[in-house]
């Protein structure tokens, strides 16, 4: 099947012709498959935010192309709004974009811009509210009466309600407490499972990325440093650490155990997997 998104030699340069000229993204190429859960990780300034704002046409490439479903999104600049409906982008701290009188109206903002009305509109508003755990009785409340975590959910629902083919989430759990983080990620996982939609998760947290995605893209200094399944990427843990990036805590434990002479695969990245490895090792050890 054809990839849903193809990024071809994307370069974005800020401040061309000024002394501040600087490339935030340089010659990046990668594909995003239909239905994939892709994680993007990298430090502030690695080019993450610039990259994702290209995927829905908020920024225009200085060079290179973005293909959505095989077609250049800038082929017809007048239709760029349609691209934004097909590639939904949830910014960091999205709760600061809420503006409507009621939660319902705020979630409906995106879909009504799309031209949805009547029952179709009502259905997608209610469905996405349910998906993120907003109760029916909360829909008529002012979004500003809700708690911080709930506001975040409303903002997320506002983008999900546009029913985009690709959903990009920039640090969706930033600033939430552990329970809030876990709940929200569970909601996103459920959305992914039920709708078979492509998700791109941008995060600073290696642990969060490791637990949720199928494939990881590691960015550093405007370039792609690594790309692969979590196991492939974390197998290069030393390299990640050298690049000043983190690896999941579990992977660090595994690496430390290997250094202490235990037969452990240093690429494990979940507590469950390392537990299994250790138990298997114990059985094996007891047998001889």
């Amino acid at each position: 099947m054809e990839p849903i998104l193809q990024i071809k030699h994307l370069t974005h340069t800020y401040g061309i012709g000024t002394p501040f000229q600087r490339s935030a993204v340089e010659d990046m190429s990668f594909d995003v498959q239909q239905g994939e859960f892709l994680g993007i990780i990298g430090h502030t300034g690695s080019g993450k935010s610039t990259l994702i704002q290209h995927l829905n046409g908020l920024l225009k490439p200085t060079e290179g192309q973005i293909l959505l479903g095989g077609r250049d999104i800038w082929a017809d600049p007048k239709k760029i709004r349609d691209v934004r409906f097909r590639v939904g982008l949830v910014f960091q701290y999205p709760e600061y974009q809420l503006f409507e009188e009621t939660v319902y109206k705020d979630i409906a903002f995106g879909p009504s811009n799309q031209g949805k009305t009547g029952e179709a509109l009502d259905r997608c508003v209610r469905e996405s509210a349910r998906l993120v755990g907003i109760r029916d009785d909360q829909l008529e409340k002012s979004p500003f009466e809700l708690s911080g975590g709930q506001k975040r959910r409303v903002a997320l629902a506002g983008v999900m309600a546009m029913e985009p083919d690709v959903l990009i989430l920039d640090e969706p759990t930033a600033g939430l407490d552990p329970a809030g983080r876990e709940n929200l990620m569970a909601n996103i996982q459920e959305y992914h499972r039920n709708h078979q939609k492509t998700i791109i998760l941008v995060s600073h947290s290696m642990d969060e990325i490791a637990r949720n995605v199928d494939r990881i893209l590691v960015l550093k200094g405007a370039h792609i440093l690594m790309s692969g399944t979590p196991a492939e990427v974390f197998a290069r843990g030393e390299e990640l650490l050298e690049a000043g990036l983190d690896v999941p805590q579990v992977t660090r434990v595994a690496m430390a155990l290997k250094a202490r002479g235990l037969e452990i695969d240093p690429a494990v990245y979940t507590v469950e997997a390392l537990e299994r490895e250790l138990l298997a090792l114990r059985k094996g050890g007891a047998a001889c």
């Binding site: 704002q53 908020l58 934004r84 949830v90 999205p94 974009q97 995106g110 799309q114």
Partner: peptide, 16 residues
């Protein structure tokens, strides 16, 4: 900076 951010966020929701 904040205005820029909010504008982008609303554009991402199809604001014109």
């Amino acid at each position: 900076e904040e205005t820029d951010k909010i504008m982008s966020a609303q554009k991402a929701r199809g604001a014109d």
